[in-house]
């Protein structure tokens, strides 16, 4: 297959994943602002930081209010990372790689674009917001469903999956990075309302509230949250799970092409870290340092995949 097509699939699924993650983060922020208005501003601030879009935002606004942040993240025309923009980018990539997609996948992403373009054409009222956030997640899920149900399990599928998990791990890591301090035992004030709220944001933004509670008998403690989101291979948005999948899919490419590239070694090294470190070791090393290392390695892996599979000249 063409290198350009591999890159297009990788990015198409990264963008779709990103649209979904942004919707989840807004959902988490909305929840907090509804239940604890005093914490709202710092919450929106950290959400913007986690999306990596705060620099652009600050060129538009000087305050962090829910309405502004939501509008910026969903539909602001100056924001290349808005849901509207990334869905359009995903659809452009889908057009570019049209020959690598089944009709079902193409139609799902095209419909995702058409529906969300209409839904995000005008400012979103508070009343419509929950419905629209749900729609964003659902449309992305439709594309994923079509992918699973109709695509051949070949190199094209592998690149689509690598893009998905790469973006997802990145997102989880960035949420953890923004919030790492509230997970640290040293500054923890057990049982204070703020802390519960903060933890809940992290879990909500990763769609893990219910799963966490089921597996931890309703006990909430910061170390186990950190462990859950980084190391638990049962959670589909944990770093260990996503990197397990990335390694699997890179492995299929290695088998199919019969070539091992530098990206394979890089991915193996990242995965090994999740297998050898337990959560105590991570806290001893430093949670922030561990996540920073991860984000750095992950960025290097992204570049290496791009080179090894010739996404660009």
């Amino acid at each position: 297959m063409l290198g350009k097509t591999a890159g297009g699939l990788f990015w198409m699924f990264r963008y779709l994943e990103r649209s979904e993650n942004t919707a989840r983060m807004i959902d988490a922020g909305l929840r907090i602002s509804l239940t604890r208005s005093s914490a709202a501003e710092s919450e929106w601030t950290s959400i913007l930081h986690a999306t990596g879009l705060q620099a652009g935002y600050l060129q538009r606004y000087s305050t962090y209010t829910g309405d502004q942040v939501i509008d910026y993240l969903l539909r602001d025309e100056t924001n290349p990372g808005s849901v509207r923009a990334v869905v359009e980018a995903a659809r452009n990539d889908a057009r570019l790689v049209r020959t690598a997609l089944t009709r079902e996948v193409w139609e799902a992403v095209n419909e995702c674009y058409m529906v969300l373009k209409d839904a995000l054409a005008h400012p979103i009222s508070d009343r419509d917001l929950p419905r629209i956030l749900q729609m964003i997640r659902q449309r992305s899920a439709f594309v994923r469903g079509a992918l699973h149900g109709t695509m051949l399990r070949n190199e094209m599928y592998d690149f689509a999956r690598i893009g998905t998990f790469f973006e997802r791990a990145d997102n989880t890591a960035r949420i953890l990075d923004v919030k790492y301090y509230i997970l640290l035992p040293s500054v923890m004030h057990v049982g204070t309302p703020t802390d519960n709220v903060q933890w809940e944001t992290i879990l909500r933004a990763t769609s893990a509230v219910r799963a966490y509670q089921t597996l931890h008998d309703g006990e909430v403690d910061p170390k186990s949250i950190a462990k859950f989101l980084m190391l638990d291979r049962r959670l589909p948005r944990s770093l260990a799970f996503c990197y397990g999948k990335i390694q699997d899919n890179l492995g299929y490419l290695e088998t199919d092409y019969g070539v091992r590239h530098p990206c394979h070694d890089l991915a193996a090294r990242i995965c090994k870290r999740f297998a050898t470190y337990d959560v105590d070791a991570i806290f001893d090393y430093g949670l922030h340092e561990f996540i920073s290392d991860f984000l750095k390695d992950s960025a290097a892996l992204g570049q290496q995949i791009e080179i090894d599979y010739r996404f660009i000249e």
Partner: peptide, 11 residues
Amino acid sequence: NGRVAMRTTEG
């Protein structure tokens, strides 16, 4: 090498 070639994931 005297042919028109496309850039694939394998060269």
